[in-house]
């Protein structure tokens, strides 16, 4: 009796205080929410949402060519997306020394951050069994185009996106040279970069876990 009275009192207080007491809300809120919830199924059929969805909602606006150009900076393994321009190892060396060497080492091997240069004897691929084998552009990367794409978008971390296309070409050329993938006098541009032969290119295989369904109890994947 006493507690029932208290509940009512809180309920009234709750209304006055506009939800000031969490306990008071459910009484009023339940009445509000249960009725529409029961009427819901017609509005939101669980099984076939597409049946009532239009092909298009007409939301959003067309992108302008300028907007697309401004953001479309990716470079594909086939070289699609590479900009005009060119660079040689000699062009890249001074830029590397001033803007990259502090984090990646004088010759790309010394760190402290990711080791960028170095090949393994016979272009071996011992990475599963030897945790110390350095994964570099020359020893591990399957595509040279990735270096242009990544350096242009993300490096150096203190000023990402600040390098000009010719500077990126020069840096890529210098890194490929440090990895003994191109000669010192090579010129790297949109045509030559996708053609650089990468030692690890054929090492990469698609992931087959999950499909087809593993046999029950299969566990070595």
């Amino acid at each position: 009796m006493k507690s029932a009275l208290r509940l009512v009192a809180i309920g009234v207080l709750g209304l006055i205080c506009a939800g000031g007491d969490r306990n008071a809300v459910p009484l009023a809120a339940q009445a509000r929410t249960t009725a529409p919830a029961k009427a819901q199924p017609a509005k939101a059929p669980a099984k076939a949402p597409s049946a009532k969805e239009p092909a298009r909602f007409g939301i959003g606006r067309p992108a302008t060519p300028a907007e697309i150009t401004a953001w479309d900076i990716d470079v594909g393994p086939d070289g699609v997306g590479l900009p005009p321009g060119r660079g040689t190892p000699a062009d890249g060396a001074p830029i590397y020394a001033s803007r990259c060497a502090g984090c990646h080492g004088k010759t790309g091997k010394e760190g402290p951050n990711d080791v960028l240069a170095g090949r393994l004897p016979g272009d071996a691929f011992p990475f599963a069994r030897d945790p110390r084998a350095p994964k570099t552009i020359g020893s591990y990367w399957p595509y040279a185009t990735t270096a242009f794409d990544y350096i242009r978008r993300a490096m150096p971390p203190d000023a990402p996106g600040s390098l000009k296309d010719n500077e990126v070409y020069g840096l890529v050329a210098y890194l490929l040279f440090l990895n003994e993938l191109i000669p010192a006098d090579a010129s790297i541009d949109a045509t030559s970069l996708p053609k650089v032969k990468m030692p690890a290119h054929d090492r990469f295989v698609p992931d087959t876990r999950g499909a087809p369904k593993p046999a029950p109890g299969a566990k070595s994947r």
Binding site: D74, G76, P77, D149, Y150, R203, F204
Partner: peptide, 19 residues
Amino acid sequence: FMTREETSKYTEPMADGTA
């Protein structure tokens, strides 16, 4: 697109010499 995050990183070398 063969981005850095799906080639240099986030790939797994396997015991059979592939990745």
